[in-house]
Design a protein around this nucleic acid. Structure first.
Lengths: 224, 224
DNA sequence: CTGCACAGGATTGGATACGAAATGATGTTC
DNA sequence: GAACATCATTTCGTATCCAATCCTGTGCAG
């Protein structure tokens, strides 16, 4: 979905802009888990009425990043350690399927992945957290899309967004940044060999590092 | 989500009722893939204004059962053979994870599953297609929920709904109905032994039968 | 007959204003 | 201190309106 936004043709509707804006606020930690999201406030901020805002909120609720309670309102979803683990379980299951569906990559495709990975390095140097997150995501989804399994990749996209407020915390830690780029290089090497099983193993390790950092950062999971 | 609708406590909002009603219309084939969904018509039918209807439509769009094009409107999503295959691929991946997470079941739990499966037989005798679909779904999700992986099961629920307009076609065929109940019995037997890998294998076969029937029923996949 | 421009109707997108209903907090009474 | 009434806030939903867009069909020119 987010990666499918390749239609600058028609001007976006207010709902689409509202969804994009709320997602941006989540990425930038302007909205954090548990926080109430007030319709009127958002509407004013976006310069639109409440109607498109409410539709945007419903979209994000269905996606799992917001929760809604009737007559109380919307709030950013809080995930406890167990729920976060489930999200990563689903990611592992689906990403594994996608990787196994990879065709043999062309030289061009390998070059592009390499370029995207090096782009992460640049962001690392600039210590721009938002940039790192975006570049990292761009690399992984460029890879995922190679499978041709668009619906599955869309689903993975949803799962990434669902854990976004938590992953962002994790990437503030500088320790793992260099490692990320290194691990990506290994994946590209494996892809060059057409060794998808190696990529699966590398991705599993890659995710595990994130989960480990995350659990540490979370400490005791926030309780509802 | 649908299985989590265990809150008759508070009166449902118009949006919730609209979502439920549209889902019902999809199950009953009152709405079929490709069909346009007119907001005004739905609103009149539900006795509400367009606003809650639009929010309901957004929810179902995010779920993947409806598609939306700005200024054109909502339509029931059409899946071609490839997309349908992807939905089943995801189901296999996630359902496998859920089954592997099953604990050893108590006698009570096994009894309940058996009862749910026998309930399907009753529906089969009555040749009530909607009843069969509901009973079948009830059996499988009662099973899935035993895993305790609620978020994953919710996701599976979404995938089931996504293919619902197509699965319904499939169950109109009487051939497989008896087989379904038989295959469920085998699963219960395997569960009694605590042999989750056997259940995984049985579910894989179970799904494959559906896919086979589906492809046959679809014939040449409907083109956009 | 075909292609195209244009006009009108239908539908969606969105704003505004209003009222109803539910919630959570506050204060009051016993 | 607990139960209860009150009240402001926020959300839920309606009604009405207008703009933007799409679709269709009609007429005209080639």
């Amino acid at each position: 979905m987010v990666s499918t936004e390749t239609e600058p043709a028609r001007r976006a509707t207010s709902v689409q802009r509202a969804v994009a804006e709320i997602r941006r606020m989540l990425r930038s930690r302007e909205l954090v888990p548990g926080q109430q999201v007030r319709q009127e406030t958002l509407a004013a901020r976006l310069g639109v009425s409440r109607i498109p805002v409410r539709e945007a909120l419903k979209t994000l609720e269905a996606e799992g990043v917001l929760r809604h309670e009737p007559h109380v309102g919307y709030a950013v979803a809080r995930l406890n350690a167990d729920e976060l683990a489930q999200v990563y379980l689903m990611r592992r299951a689906l990403e594994t399927e996608v990787i196994r569906a990879f065709p043999r990559l062309s030289a061009d495709q390998l070059r592009e992945l390499t370029a995207l990975n090096e782009a992460i390095t640049e962001q690392v140097d600039k210590v721009d957290v938002a940039g790192i997150v975006a570049a990292n995501q761009a690399f992984h989804f460029a890879m995922f899309r190679l499978s041709g399994l668009d619906l599955v990749v869309d689903e993975i996209d949803r799962l990434w967004r669902r854990s976004e407020p938590y992953r962002t915390v994790h990437l503030y830690d500088s320790g793992g940044r260099a490692r990320v780029v290194r691990e990506h290089r290994k994946m590209i090497t494996a892809l060059r060999r057409g060794d998808t099983e190696a990529v699966v193993a590398l991705m599993d390790a890659h995710r595990d590092h994130t989960v480990a950092d995350l659990s540490a950062a979370l400490g005791l999971p926030p309780r509802a």
